[in-house]
């Protein structure tokens, strides 16, 4: 009986540690995936805004900052979500 109890406690303890370790790894993986999704999306927004500005006759200077503003707003939007 004592052996059974001890074994049960050991299993629970071992499982708890194993799950905690798994959770930590899962957390890392989720964060990495989020970065990969955000960056190309906002880069694309930056490029589109720059292209729109240039197509409408803006200087490169104006288009650069229009693109930078779009990138910044995109990052803000995604971080709120």
């Amino acid at each position: 009986m004592k052996k059974l109890v001890f074994t049960g406690l050991a299993v629970v303890a071992f499982s708890g540690v194993a799950m905690a370790w798994t959770r930590e790894v899962k957390g890392e993986m989720i964060d990495k995936k989020a970065e990969e999704v955000v960056s190309p999306t906002c880069d694309q927004e930056q490029k589109e805004a720059e292209q729109d500005a240039l197509a409408n006759g803006a200087s490169k200077f104006e288009a650069y900052f229009a693109g930078a503003a779009a990138w910044g707003d995109c990052m803000k939007t995604l971080s709120f979500n």
Binding site: E45, E48, A49, Q51, D52, A53, A70, D73, C74
Partner: peptide
């Protein structure tokens, strides 16, 4: 040309 721009951020800004 502003209305026909692709970027919603560009139009909004």
């Amino acid at each position: 040309g502003l209305k026909n721009s692709k970027s919603t951020y560009y139009k909004s800004n």
